[in-house]
Nucleic acid binder design. Sequence first.
DNA 1: GAGGGCAGGTCTCACATAGAGACCTGCGAC
DNA 2: GTCGCAGGTCTCTATGTGAGACCTGCCCTC
Lengths: 141, 141
Amino acid sequence: MSAALSAIERFSRYQSDDAQSVKPVHCPVRDVLDRIGDKWSILLLMTLAMRPQRFSELHRAVRDISKRMLTQTLRDLERDGLITRHVFPTKPPSVEYCLSPLGQSLLEPMASLIDWADRRYSDIHAARVRFDGAPSDVQRS
Amino acid sequence: MSAALSAIERFSRYQSDDAQSVKPVHCPVRDVLDRIGDKWSILLLMTLAMRPQRFSELHRAVRDISKRMLTQTLRDLERDGLITRHVFPTKPPSVEYCLSPLGQSLLEPMASLIDWADRRYSDIHAARVRFDGAPSDVQRS
DNA sequence: GAGGGCAGGTCTCACATAGAGACCTGCGAC
DNA sequence: GTCGCAGGTCTCTATGTGAGACCTGCCCTC
């Protein structure tokens, strides 16, 4: 726990450095979070964690992503070295995406987040119902 | 590792259930990820992890968030029970936000992600440079 | 040998979301 | 009375996203 929290302290140093300087300080953590924290990246990484998959397989697995965003997200992940892209010279060429070692290394921290999400979902859902049910200052005692 | 990866397997089951059914299957993991995976939530949670803070402190800590998004993100986090909001009846009323126990429980998985981001940033940065430097099939050998 | 189909995209347009920054509210100090 | 402050809300514009038509090679069928 304290080991993990030291990461937060390290991050906080970037924050306070930034707050104190005139020019914004570049924070690697934010950079990375902006990347994998978008709408589709984690979802695609999780999907590829099961096995390498082709473009259209991914599209079927994550049905509500548009081709446009699928292409774009995959390209960004490839750019960041998290996945690799292989083109096979079949009749209509097929393209397979799979996790790189760097992408693999992200699985463990990501899985702990998924695990949290799955275990705490009922709490979150309950909190939402409670919040929406008490629109102003209605307090149950 | 295998314990963590079992979370991924569990998640994959939602995915394949969804792929097979006609009606989309509601996936709690996606629900939660959509929430904390937005541009500002993790950043604010990390900032609040250090200590409870007031609206304007948060605004100073995360300088490039707009008031609009700060308000909205805080409200969403409160709705999900991750943070609590206390109004103090000072002369101009001040408002303090702090992590709820549920929010605290998110710190550990989040910290491991932060830690990953911090340690792997140089790899990611290198991959980006490589990708941008090789626009087509130029390969350094 | 013309037409159709498939994989993996790109392009265009319409709409939703985010950011900038002006404004609001209540109150105490000057 | 009017200034300033905390914590917002509102409006306008810029940016991002989704839907879905279209494109490109190539093979297969007719």
